[in-house]
Each structure stands twice: as structure tokens, then as C-alpha cells.
Design a protein around this nucleic acid. Sequence first.
DNA 1: TGTTATCTGTACTGTTCGGTATTGAAAGTA
DNA 2: TACTTTCAATACCGAACAGTACAGATAACA
Lengths: 199, 199
Amino acid sequence: MKLKTKIGRPRAFDTDEALESALQVFWRKGYEGTSLTDLTEAMGINRPSLYSAFGNKEDLFRKALTRYAEGSVSFVRNALEAPTARGVAEKLLYGATEMMNDPRNPPGCLMVQGALSCSETAEPIRQELAARRAAGQAKIRERFERAKKEGDLPADANPADLARFVSTVMQGMSVQASGGATHAELRRVVQLALRVFPG
Amino acid sequence: MKLKTKIGRPRAFDTDEALESALQVFWRKGYEGTSLTDLTEAMGINRPSLYSAFGNKEDLFRKALTRYAEGSVSFVRNALEAPTARGVAEKLLYGATEMMNDPRNPPGCLMVQGALSCSETAEPIRQELAARRAAGQAKIRERFERAKKEGDLPADANPADLARFVSTVMQGMSVQASGGATHAELRRVVQLALRVFPG
DNA sequence: TGTTATCTGTACTGTTCGGTATTGAAAGTA
DNA sequence: TACTTTCAATACCGAACAGTACAGATAACA
């Protein structure tokens, strides 16, 4: 669908780079805190170029969010493949500390920082973020259910509760990082959280 | 200073009720997501009345925040007086579950939901919230330091880390509540978090 | 070398934002 | 009753918001 005839004036900017710049701005300021002027300045393009390449502000945010999920958050996929439930939790939580304190990016997690509370007009974005968080948590729960079947988690363990616990800690870490918590501080939080897991 | 002569037309609205209404709106929509129109409609007063009684939007938010800290968050003060570190953690975390799921209020915690990410103009509010969260965490740390001296926490315990852990879980719970987590679900998260505390 | 399709840049749209000038109403004081 | 003080309500301000019309520029195609 991008393979149409190449007739006409070619695009003068790299859409991938522009999307990455937009992602950075949304990550730092949140959906509502970001203006189109913020975006066009960071992306180095004009408004009509932005609209023709990405649709409107909401479309652009969703595209940036997808890029984020497939980029910075890809560590989650690997974490879920760890051999034990404790290993999964370790990789998730330590992975989160690195992601949320990467000096190349704003602190915290876009799925938390993007739109926790907002006006009615941004409500669809808020819900999209909540749905993505819930989907991630469900993936963790499924992994823990498997771990329980495999005897890797004790028989009295509750996979849903453990998944929610891990999610809650990661989301709290986003708030902490946004408030200036250092990488070392978050790692010590993770060490404590991991006491909940056998192994 | 409110006891000046009562000359002149008296105020036609209850400032306390109006402030409570403003708090509810800020709590639900966040600082930037709330417009002056949202506020005046909820408070049942006109703009000039709002400005004369509360100053500008930022002043009003700070007043609402103080009301919040002295009202809904007052359970923290009681929690810190529990006899043991574990008791403190229990009261903090279970208190948070009730506060964040009180059907009379929006879900979550205003100090988290108010302004996690925002534009430059709201940056002072963002920092105020971060400072208040840090102050609360410091209070918990001091309480845990005392517990360690009293032998109530083991000698190898790190009060600062434990305080950050409890804060992190509470902040994560705010995100969870904002996403629709139920009271029972949050209570089970708390049960897991409390495994970190001896007793 | 035209023609056509697409992009870029300027300048603009209507709307909403936070904040205020102004006028008239309502109370206490004399 | 006349006066002073304070509040309430309308109507407005300039600025910023998301989004777009339009004209000029640049490429592939015939």
C-alpha cells in the first residue's frame, strides 16, 4: 500500500525519523500537553506535511504509540520467554528500570505518562492506553498460568494477582522515574518486589 | 484575616463547597485537562467570582491539592502512627485501596493523576506534585528508620528502599485504579506487596 | 518538453483557552 | 434614605489551539 506509483514530488523528510521525533515529544509532554507546534518543530516539518503523512494529532499519537510498543517496550516479549516465572518477573522489572531511565528517552513509560487523566476530547487516547496496559498485563497472567501448570509456580499461587502485582510495580516505577528516581533506586525497588516470587 | 468587616454584599456561594467541586474536577481530568469552563460549571459560579475567591487556575489547583492532602490523604498520618513497620505498611497500602476506590471520588490519587506529563506552562504544577509525593515518601522513610532503631525492622533492612517500595506500589495502584481495577483486585496486590515486610 | 501528481510553505480558518473590564445588584453603615 | 463596599453577571480580550485552503515547487511520466 506504500508501493503506489512514485509519481509526483517526493517527500523531503524521512517519515520514520519524523515519527520518532513525535514519539519523543508525546513521551515527555503527554498527549494533551503536546501541541501541533511542538510536534512540527521537533519533527522539522510543516503542518500540512504532518497531516498528509500521519493524519491528525490522534492518528499520529497512535502511530507513535505503536512504534513505542514495538521498540522500547519490546523487552517485554523477550521477558515472557524466560524459563521460569521468577525469571520472567526479573526480566520484566529490570527491563523496565532500564527502559524508564534510558538517557536517550524521557523518563517513565509512555503508556502511563501519555494520558492518565485528561479532558473529554482526549478520552479515546486515555482508554487506548488503559487497554494496552491491560493487554500487557493479560500476557503476563497467561505466562504465569503456564508456569503454574508446569509446577514452576506453587499450586496456591494466583497468576492473575501476580501479574497485576508486577504490572502495578512497573507502573509505579514510571511515576517514580518521572519524579527523578535514579536507575539504582529503581533497581532496589525491583529487588524488594522480587521477594514475592519463589526462587 | 477572614475576619475583616463584613461590609458589602456577602458571597452568595460556600467557598468550601466550591473548592470541593473544583477538587473533584481536577481529580478526574487532571490539571491541564480541566478548563475554566469545567470548573465554573461544576462549582456553580461565574469566572469573576472564581478569580476573586481563589486567584487564578494554578492557585485554585494548589488550594484543591491542599484540601485533598488534608482530607482524602489524611489516612497516611494515622498509618505512620501504627506500632510496627509492617503495621504502617498495612495501613498505608490498605488505606490507599480504599481511598482510590471510594465511589464518591474519581479513581486513583490526585498527586499521581494531576499532572504526570504536561506542557511547559503546567510544569510548576507537575513539580509541585512530584515534591509532595517525595515528601510523603520521606515521611515513610523516617518512620522506617525509627522502626529499624527500635529493632522492629531487621538490622539489614534499608528504610529508604522500603519506603520507596511502598510508595511505588501505591503509585502503581493509582494507575491501576484509573484503569478500572476493583477494590478487591487492589487488595490482593497489597497482600502480595506486604510479603516484603517481616511479621 | 509539457502534463500530471504529489509535496512544501505561508497564511488563514473557527474555536477554545485563561483571564478581565464593566455594569448593576445587594448588603452594612450612617 | 444616602452612601460605601463588595459581589455577580455579561460580555469581552489577546493568545493559543487543532486543522486547512491555496499557491508555488519538484519529481515521474508521456
